[in-house]
Design a protein around this nucleic acid. Structure first.
Lengths: 138, 138
DNA sequence: TTCCATTTTTATAATGATTATAATTTGTAT
DNA sequence: ATACAAATTATAATCATTATAAAAATGGAA
């Protein structure tokens, strides 16, 4: 349980942190800090963007979420910490989980003396929805 | 030849562009825009950082270089446009070419309707030099 | 060559996501 | 209740990158 993990790390379960956790839980939309902020602001009017950043930092450090840097200069966050690829649709900008191949990579891995502890795979292209659209229009 | 490619794109071979190309050619150090700027500035005192950015943008668009986003918020550039992985040493911050597995990925590739045109693989860990060092110290 | 239009370069300002700061609030343990 | 520590907040600062506009360089036509 993620709450217990936070406790173990000596972190308090503030309403803000719980709310952010709730947004992230099972979320496959890969929200940015601002996405999360905007989603919660109506319900938590006092919420600060800085708190969202702080919490995401804490969660990432605790390995409870994964940071994705696939789109522009923004960070996106994924509660699924299992290694898996990510796909950016260059047409609509959406980000999706995608595993193209099941990689035979078990970390830590030593390759020519380079010790690999972690890896990320990013795919770029067109998502099914945008592909459908362009097929109909074209 | 990269020069011919630029010509074909209707781009002029200015001294600045040629200098930047020369820095990149065969360079495996994955320099950032600022790295390139600092390296050239003594020889080209009038050179502007904006020109370096412009040229890198032009080269990337022309698919003559590859953009790497593995380290912090900075972009790094690789003249090797063949698909290959990159490794970031979390100790010293150096970036290296690294192919852990020869991926059976040929683009374009259709996976569940997602059309993959391009992909990037980033590895994170400790490079051989830093590993040696910590072994001696530890 | 000279002139003109276009491209490129340059210095600088603007942008925008993220981080730092400092004051205030909240939580916890005694 | 009190005091100490942690978290939140508003805001300022940072820093890589992009935009802007003026100046310089280039290339082609006359």
């Amino acid at each position: 349980m993620i709450k217990e993990k936070l406790r173990r790390l000596g972190l308090q379960l503030s309403p803000q942190r719980l709310a952010i956790l709730k947004v992230l839980e099972g979320n496959t939309r890969h929200p940015s800090a601002e996405d999360i902020y905007k989603q919660l602001k109506p319900e938590y009017p006092s919420l600060s963007l800085a708190t969202v950043y702080n919490t995401l930092e804490v969660l990432a450090r605790a390995q409870e979420i994964q940071v994705i840097r696939i789109k522009g200069d923004k960070r996106h966050f994924d509660p699924n910490t299992k290694p898996h690829g990510h796909f950016l649709c260059r047409v609509c900008g959406s980000i999706h989980d995608l595993d193209v191949v099941s990689l035979p990579i078990k970390t830590p891995l030593n390759v020519n003396g380079y010790v690999v502890e972690e890896y990320k795979i990013y795919f770029y292209g067109t998502c099914p929805v945008c592909r459908e659209k362009s097929a109909k229009e074209g």
